[in-house]
Write a protein that binds this DNA or RNA. Structure first.
Lengths: 196, 196
DNA sequence: ACGGCTTGCTCGCGTTTAGATAACATCACT
DNA sequence: AGTGATGTTATCTAAACGCGAGCAAGCCGT
């Protein structure tokens, strides 16, 4: 496990190599992180080497990153990609933290079956992250239980007269409208993910 | 058997780990439960450790919950959800591990701009996980660079005569065909995720 | 080759923060 | 009164983090 500062050093080195094509000097690492002492940087490098994140040779700029040991749960964030334009780089090398992205209490995962939400980008086989809840707001995508029997993933819309509409995102299907007491909300969609 | 307060401490720790992805400090536990003293918290932790609920290492944030459902970066896996049927429960409570799901070497994240892949369930603003690669197979969704200028996310199709087609998943757009030497593959789509 | 420079390494020291430990107070309930 | 759960204060230890001096090895220019 890396401490906060060790993590910062590690990420700085990765970024430096990506940007400059060579490993940083101790003093460059220090400068980048606001450390005025080479000794401190050296201690961090030793810690990283000991834990298998980097390798050092005694030559100048002799740091190598071993990406077998990428820090778990994060991905380097390279930028945006758009049709017709080159990848728009993100300024300072950020990390996308999968853990915090979907973190939250009372959350769980479901696998989606069926195509009722394809037009919302939710396909058969995808995972969805649901946060337990008993109430929702109009427009939320929810897991709703109808008559204590049928659970579905739909956009919800409360309507006048105590009616609730469950709206699929698939133009081949139609919205279903029920009296409010027949529909029980189980959770609200918070995230979605897919593995190819 | 846990006392009322011990139970509260235990639950607080579990929730904290799930939400923050890391164990709390003694002072954070205290703050969360209205205790102004690290000493008390420490006593509770000792009690919990003695009864086998947690494990401690002497490092900072060194609390680990032994219940494996409470590990950072995982979500309880409840089952499948399908239109028209109740949630199909998964037998034994499994965990969905976000870290291993997208793990792999040479991977990075990009944010998608534009709608060229909507019919593949990839929408504007989604994150995609890309694995660096120089070659791909027909049908792979790739990040391709055309003429060293334009980067796009498209399905690739190698055709006879050294031609390469880049096929969007949007019926409003058309496939583009280039001679092979103008198209350079940068990576292959391995995952996709979205936060609501 | 020589000395000066840079670079990396080793070492000792200090500060801050967090965890460990202990002595003691309060309250409820028996 | 006695017991146990709960809370407070104070103190000690160790980790994390930082500074800087000094040393050795390679680089460079006169």
């Amino acid at each position: 496990m890396l401490s906060k500062r060790e993590q910062a050093v590690y990420e700085f080195i990765c970024q430096f190599i990506l940007e400059q094509g060579q490993a940083p000097l101790l003093s460059e690492i220090g400068e980048g992180l606001g450390i005025n002492s080479k000794g401190v940087v050296h201690r961090y490098l030793s810690a990283l080497e000991e834990q298998g994140y980097i390798e050092r040779s005694k030559r100048h700029r002799g740091i190598r990153v071993l990406d077998e040991q990428v820090s778990p749960g994060t991905l380097p964030l390279m930028g945006r990609i758009a049709a017709g334009q080159p990848i728009e780089a993100v300024n300072d090398q950020q990390q996308l933290d999968l853990n915090s992205l979907f973190a939250g209490s009372n959350r769980y995962a479901l696998q989606v079956k069926g195509d009722s939400m394809v037009e919302a980008g939710i396909c058969d086989g995808d995972w969805v992250v649901i946060e337990s809840a008993q109430t929702a707001r109009n427009g939320d995508i929810v897991v709703a239980l109808v008559d204590d029997e049928d659970a579905t993933l739909k956009t919800i819309d409360y309507r006048a007269g105590g009616q609730v509409a469950l709206i699929p995102s698939n133009s081949a299907m139609e919205a279903m409208v029920y009296p409010e007491e027949r529909v029980q909300i189980q959770g609200i969609l918070k995230g979605q993910l897919r593995v190819y």
